[in-house]
């Protein structure tokens, strides 16, 4: 079972190679096959996540959530998607039409690209980049621009305010988010995702870097505009923030991108801090899946517990708490590494 998906990829590879293509073309074809596989994985998981979110939210509020359509309400989201797609697609009269339309398609691009380097199991990533973690951080920060495209293109004051808040929030939280990974990078000496996972053979980085993990959870939650940090789409004052004007299929894109981002965040957290696909008995990809969903559940738990944070408190938390804490964590990690090296060198332990 361990190499189930790797074996499938191998079979497809042999099949493509059987057409008599040269090495480069086979490689390219395999990348496309893997890309499609990841795309399907993400879309299926988004469906599960939205259902899960609604059920979990219901359970936290002592309700049952959707439980009518299909067994236990599992087909609810399928119906919702059909409903959304059958609705009228409205482009506001004053909107910057190109930007408005482009944003709805572009919002999914960075999210999908992030998944390209995530190891779903042993040898189960589309491309194992040397700069994997750096690539993830670089790509995911592009989302900020697209959200602002949506906010600006809608020509609506709520959308614009939502977009501006998104920029302020996501650019600020990018910094502790990146710093929270630095401790891990110092420990492994690599940005390669597979190396980071392999370095957690004995002990997960959540044990060595607990503060970094907490900073990652908070900053990551703010990065994906969820939970207590959903200011860019604060319902009470901004209707729906940057996607106020979006309807039908375009709205579905934003909605799905939100959950795809949540899953991406959980996948990064599971890889970097929770040991990725490492784990006893069960196959690696299943372990990864379990860890990912545990983090997702944690995020939902937080979201349905805490009220929305105030704008100035948001900035306060970032610049005056998370940033110093994550910097201190880097310093302590550096000292710790040196002390450990010294102890090993002197042969004391």
């Amino acid at each position: 079972m361990e190499n189930f998906f790797v074996n499938i990829a191998g079979l497809i590879r042999d099949l493509i190679a059987g057409f008599g293509l040269n090495e480069t073309l086979v490689y390219l074809a395999m990348v496309i096959v893997k890309f499609v596989a990841v795309l399907v994985f993400v879309l299926l998981n988004v469906v599960v996540l939205v259902y899960m979110e609604r059920r979990v939210a219901g359970f936290f509020q002592e309700r049952l959530g959707p439980n009518r359509v299909g067994p236990q309400g599992t087909l609810q989201l399928v119906m919702d998607i059909f409903k959304l797609l059958s609705k009228e697609d409205i482009v506001p009269a004053g909107a910057d039409k190109f930007v408005y339309k482009a944003a709805a398609y572009a919002i999914f691009v960075p999210t999908i690209l992030v998944y390209m380097v995530i190891p779903f199991g042993k040898g189960m990533n589309v491309i194992d980049l040397n700069l994997g973690l750096f690539y993830i951080l670089a790509i995911s920060s592009v989302t900020t621009m697209i959200i602002f495209m949506a906010g600006w293109g809608s020509r609506n004051k709520y959308s614009l305010v939502g977009g501006m808040r998104a920029i302020a929030q996501m650019v600020s939280y990018e910094i502790p988010y990146v710093f929270s990974f630095l401790g891990v990078i110092m420990l492994t000496g690599s940005l390669k995702m597979s190396t980071i996972v392999e370095a957690q053979q004995g002990v997960w980085f959540i044990v060595l870097q607990p503060i970094a993990f907490i900073v990652f959870l908070i900053a990551g939650n703010a990065e994906i505009n969820r939970g207590p940090f959903d200011l860019p789409e604060g319902e009470q004052e901004l209707v729906a923030g940057y996607h106020t004007e979006y309807t039908a299929g375009r709205f579905a894109m934003f909605y799905m991108a939100e959950y795809a981002n949540l899953l991406a965040m959980a996948a990064i957290g599971a890889t970097v801090f929770l040991g990725g696909w490492q784990g006893p008995w069960l196959p690696g990809w299943l372990w990864f899946f379990i860890k990912m969903y545990a983090l997702v559940f944690g995020q939902m738990w937080v979201r349905w517990t805490f009220p929305r944070i105030r704008v100035d408190h948001l900035m306060h938390l970032n610049w005056k708490v998370l940033l110093p804490v994550s910097l201190a964590n880097i310093v302590v990690t550096g000292i710790g590494i040196k002390v450990y090296q010294m102890v090993r060198m002197m042969g004391w332990w």
Binding site: V56, G58, F59, F60, Q61, E62, R63, L64, W301, W304, T305
Partner: peptide
Amino acid sequence: TIKHFFSPKIT
């Protein structure tokens, strides 16, 4: 909130 998550539902 986690207590409410596991408590019987009123629906």
